[in-house]
């Protein structure tokens, strides 16, 4: 499988929303992920487009998939994100009030 770096993987609002939803509940099908994106985020991309986003996230190591019964389910894996904090450590006395809301690029 091709490798995708995590910066590319999380540089997209839809992919971040997918990770948010998988943190909310682990082990979701493509159908459930698409439903949550439409109903909770107003993201109405096609199933095929969401499937491609999932491929990118999987290639970056941020999700893994497993078969349960005959369904393919998706899990969030946070470990690759540690590299960000290691590269740019946050000291404890820093002002952390800066907003990380997603309005920046909307």
């Amino acid at each position: 499988m091709r490798h995708v770096d995590i910066y590319h993987a999380i540089a997209d609002r839809t992919r971040r929303a997918i990770l948010d939803e998988l943190v909310d509940r682990s082990g979701q099908s493509l159908f459930e992920i698409c439903g949550r994106l439409i109903m909770k985020h107003g993201i109405n991309s096609s199933r095929q487009a969401i499937s491609q986003h999932l491929d990118v996230l999987e290639a970056a190591g941020l999700i893994r998939t497993r078969r349960e019964g005959r369904s393919k389910l998706h899990w969030f894996v946070g470990a690759p994100l540690k590299a960000i904090g290691q590269r740019w450590p946050v000291s404890t006395d820093e002002d952390t009030s800066h907003s990380t809301e997603e309005d920046i690029e909307k």
Binding site: R25, R36, M39
Partner: peptide
């Protein structure tokens, strides 16, 4: 019954999916 998706609140509806 085996559920692949437990009850999920999607704002205007609540859904679940079973086998």
């Amino acid at each position: 019954v085996r559920f692949v998706q437990p009850p999920t609140d999607l704002g205007t509806v609540i859904t679940a999916v079973f086998d």
